[in-house]
Nucleic acid binder design. Sequence first.
DNA 1: ACCTGAACACCGTTCAAGT
DNA 2: ACCTGAACACCGTTCAAGT
Lengths: 198, 198
Amino acid sequence: MNRAERPTYHHGNLRAAALERAAQLAANGGSGALSLRALARELGVSPAALYRHFAHKDALLDELAGRALAALEVALREALDREASADPAARLAALGRGYLAFARAHPDAFRIVFELRRNALADAQQAEPYTLLLRAVGALAPPGAEDARVQRAALAAWAFVHGLAALESQQAWRGAIASVADDLLRDYAIALRGSYPA
Amino acid sequence: MNRAERPTYHHGNLRAAALERAAQLAANGGSGALSLRALARELGVSPAALYRHFAHKDALLDELAGRALAALEVALREALDREASADPAARLAALGRGYLAFARAHPDAFRIVFELRRNALADAQQAEPYTLLLRAVGALAPPGAEDARVQRAALAAWAFVHGLAALESQQAWRGAIASVADDLLRDYAIALRGSYPA
DNA sequence: ACCTGAACACCGTTCAAGT
DNA sequence: ACCTGAACACCGTTCAAGT
């Protein structure tokens, strides 16, 4: 009845509505459980309608992954903003805590981005999350440090925190990791700083 | 015609045949593409027949995960056997290289074990791969080191190598990680040894 | 341009019935 | 005890047809 409550999909907002609802559906029930037909049902639209806006299911999932990656970036920036200390090691550890907190709070989004198989991170090396990490690791190095060495260290740091997040997402390891994660992140950052010759 | 070529599933080997064929199907096409109906078709059996041996699809997948974990253990032991050096840091690095090599050679098996969502690793902390790692990390510590500290270090080391494997499984990162992985593993092992007070 | 209806070739799972 | 046949409620995707 009300124009505002019953948006006219004929005017170009089915795509946006689909993405928003898909993210919600993935949040409950897991991203694997997301079906286009169920999504269409929720939106009061025929299954075929979605194919005007997404070439196939994976195209929708890729779009979702892109948005999740952007959300991760925001979360990481906020984690840095919340860290009062200017100490580079403390800031790097804060970044790691932000990463883990995001993976805990949005396991579905985390899964969609890092699912072991899709290549959603096509240009991930230019992606903001990596840039943030690179900067944080760079701040830990002395002024003259070689770029290649800083990049290697950033890669290693990502692998470490990502591994923590991935293992924590496994039932069997959740507790064991979660209880020591903050300490491990702090130790890692301090050890990394120590690895540069004084 | 030949009894040996046409095994009689009525005598209890459908279960074994199903697991073997399922692993092959997962190896091509990805573990996500494995369907019970396709599996039954391959085995020349009705779809319902599989339900005499597996309560549901996930039960078969769990069994597959258990076997993959056992295969990982074998691969890790072989990696240790291949490492001639007795230096604990070199042996820990060899273990890491073995982990990465397994993930590269059997991406499907790796995925089935560590898929970000299932809890296949129900008792992973007693699992052999973790025990091997714990031992390798322990060998790096001085005799009097506290157990809790060694366990934390083993957890961190697993997270690190697992993160490398997970990122490497992503198209976008494969090259960047693969080219420095061996160096990173060696540096990690050396740094870990250095982290213990002399 | 955007959506519907109906169809195709699949799924996982259940259950009566066969041997 | 182990398997088949047939059914149920789903999938993703395509394509003609409607507005």
